[in-house]
Simulated scan of single mutants.
Amino acid sequence: MKKFISLIALIVLFNCNNKSLNEELDNLRSENYELKKEVDKAIADSKRQITTFLTFQNKDAEQAMNFYVSIFKNSKITEVRRHGKESPAPEGSILMARFELNGSQYACSDSYIKHEWNFTPGVSNFVDCASNEELESLFTKLSENGKVLMPLADYGFSKKFGFIEDQFGVSWQLNLDE
């Protein structure tokens, strides 16, 4: 009889401990689920950032994007979507593309609608250059077939500064504060 009571006591104790373990396991699962929701939200929020969007009207979005990625360090194309056969735009033109220039997010497209507006120097890309060599290299490459709005010089607000409109009509302010 003592063995039977001891066995029942062990079963009751095991069930109590098992319930406790199951409750703990359920709590951990719930906490894990909540943490996963927070991580998913943080990832989604990181994708909702302000991105410079360039609308090209001469079907040269891809050419411009490739040019920019080639001259800025730590840059890459991250997404390219093209117009298809059923689109009102020319097949293969850029519907939407995303790229990074040294960590800054950009997006672009080829507009099949000719707008009355285009790029303006009133909105430009401001680049803080790490060295005089970088500044001069970017200035040379970006101004080729473009227009120099302010030549490289000391204008009193930085050591060296230049303002250009590139061959695609996009404006760049290049700055050296060394």
Rank of each mutant, 00 (worst) to 15 (best):
S20Y: 09
E23P: 04
E23M: 12
E24I: 02
L25I: 11
N27M: 04
N27G: 14
N27I: 01
R29W: 10
R29Y: 15
R29E: 10
E31K: 13
N32V: 07
A42R: 12
I43H: 02
I43R: 06
D45E: 10
S46Q: 05
Q49G: 13
Q49E: 14
I50S: 11
I50Y: 15
T51M: 02
L54E: 06
T55I: 04
A61C: 13
E62M: 10
M65E: 03
M65L: 04
N66F: 02
F67E: 00
Y68K: 00
V69E: 02
V69L: 04
S70K: 06
I71A: 02
F72D: 01
N74F: 02
S75Q: 05
K76W: 03
I77F: 02
T78Y: 02
T78K: 06
E79Y: 12
V80L: 14
R81L: 09
H83R: 06
H83Y: 15
G84R: 08
K85Y: 05
E86G: 14
P88W: 15
A89Q: 05
P90F: 13
S93T: 15
I94C: 08
M96A: 04
A97T: 09
R98Q: 11
R98F: 09
R98N: 15
F99W: 03
F99A: 08
L101W: 07
N102E: 14
G103N: 10
S104R: 13
Q105N: 15
Q105R: 11
Q105E: 12
Q105G: 01
A107Y: 10
C108T: 12
D110S: 07
S111R: 09
S111I: 06
I113P: 00
I113R: 12
K114A: 15
H115N: 08
H115A: 10
E116C: 08
F119E: 01
T120P: 00
G122Y: 00
G122T: 05
G122F: 02
N125Y: 01
V127G: 01
C129Q: 07
E133Y: 11
E134K: 05
E134D: 14
L135H: 11
T140Y: 08
K141I: 06
K141Q: 15
K141G: 02
L142K: 03
S143G: 02
K147C: 06
K147R: 15
V148G: 05
V148R: 05
M150R: 04
M150A: 05
P151S: 13
L152C: 10
L152R: 11
D154C: 04
Y155E: 10
Y155G: 05
G156H: 07
G156S: 07
